[in-house]
């Protein structure tokens, strides 16, 4: 293709500009990473920009020695694994029947599902509801109180609708019932969609903090994000939290420790990200096509 001088100039500028934007998107992570492995004095005086100054791993030793971090990490894994399984189960339970045109009451059920997208009960009614179900300060409450999202149910439903009906019909002739058709035929076919939705649920579970922060009182039950919030936000806002006291008592600068904790919390998502990226993009496209 022949480009004019202006077009070539634009092209060069465009590459540089996009390159700069991409760098800017991940720079904060690189900055945090560099700070977490630098010495406390360089960090406290703001001398770290992109590369670590006098490399050391003291902050990580410090973080990994904290029992609370491990406990909250374990909790997050529990909430993510069981929560995702629970959400996925509910989503399939709802999406598969609703994908059948012949189902009596399909319209009413679908409409009731849509309402949940439009209208939220709000923070207080949700809180009082969980309270009245005795789910405050319970691990179970964080898992079962927040199950499926209407949006993902609809995505899943749309996918089920797109599958050819002929396989289902021939299995019916062979005497299979709907449950065995779903389990033996439909679910294996739907693996890519299920993978996408699982990842969305899992990332949401891993990252969620708001309800865990409100519902859980005991430090032994809180997930990593709530622990992080205590550490980062309360330390930086000048408040004193239990965990912050532990760290400062040991004579370390809290700053590098905070950076190390951020890295520890963000690593699983960022490390898995390149492998799961294509599923995410697929997911947003499925949602967009249906709209």
């Amino acid at each position: 293709m022949n480009l004019t001088k202006g077009e070539r100039l634009f092209s060069i500028f465009n590459y540089i500009f996009i390159g700069f934007l991409s760098f800017f998107a991940i720079y904060p992570f690189l900055y945090v990473l560099a700070c977490s492995v630098s010495d406390t004095i360089s960090v406290a005086s703001g001398n770290v920009y992109l590369f670590p100054k006098s490399f050391r791993l003291d902050a990580y030793k410090m973080v990994l020695q904290q029992k609370e971090i491990w406990v909250s990490y374990g909790n997050t894994v529990i909430y993510t694994v069981f929560g995702t399984m629970y959400s996925l189960f509910l989503t399939i339970c709802g999406a598969y029947p609703l994908s059948k045109e012949r189902l009596r009451g399909k319209k009413i059920f679908s409409f009731l599902l849509l309402i949940t997208m439009w209208f939220q009960a709000g923070i207080i009614p949700t809180y009082l509801n969980l309270k009245s179900l005795n789910l405050l300060n319970q691990r179970l409450g964080v898992i079962i109180g927040f199950g499926c999202t209407a949006f993902y149910v609809i995505i899943m439903k749309t996918y089920f609708e797109s599958l050819p009906i002929s396989m289902e019909e021939s299995a019916k002739i062979d005497g299979a019932n709907d449950l065995s058709i779903l389990w033996n035929i439909i679910l294996p076919l739907a693996k890519p969609s299920i993978a996408t939705i699982t990842l969305y649920y899992a990332v949401n579970r891993w990252n969620s903090f708001f309800w865990a922060m409100i519902l859980l009182r005991d430090n032994s039950k809180i997930p990593l994000q709530v622990m992080l919030r205590k550490l980062i936000i309360e330390t930086q806002a000048g408040g004193v939290s239990e965990s912050a006291v532990n760290i400062t008592n040991l004579g370390y600068s809290a700053e590098t420790v905070i950076y190390a904790t951020i890295v520890v919390a963000a690593v699983p998502i960022i490390a898995l990200y390149p492998f799961i990226q294509k599923y995410f993009v697929k997911g947003i496209m499925v949602g967009a096509i249906k709209g």
Binding site: A25, Q225, L228, Q236, I258, A265, I270, F280
Partner: peptide
């Protein structure tokens, strides 16, 4: 690269922002 920040938790993002804006050591 530009998608990555979307998948990082709010707590981490706010933590990073607070660090960057810190009056004593923030970038």
């Amino acid at each position: 690269l530009t998608y990555i920040p979307h998948f990082v938790s709010t707590v981490v993002v706010v933590g990073i922002v607070m660090s960057l804006l810190s009056p004593t050591s923030g970038l």
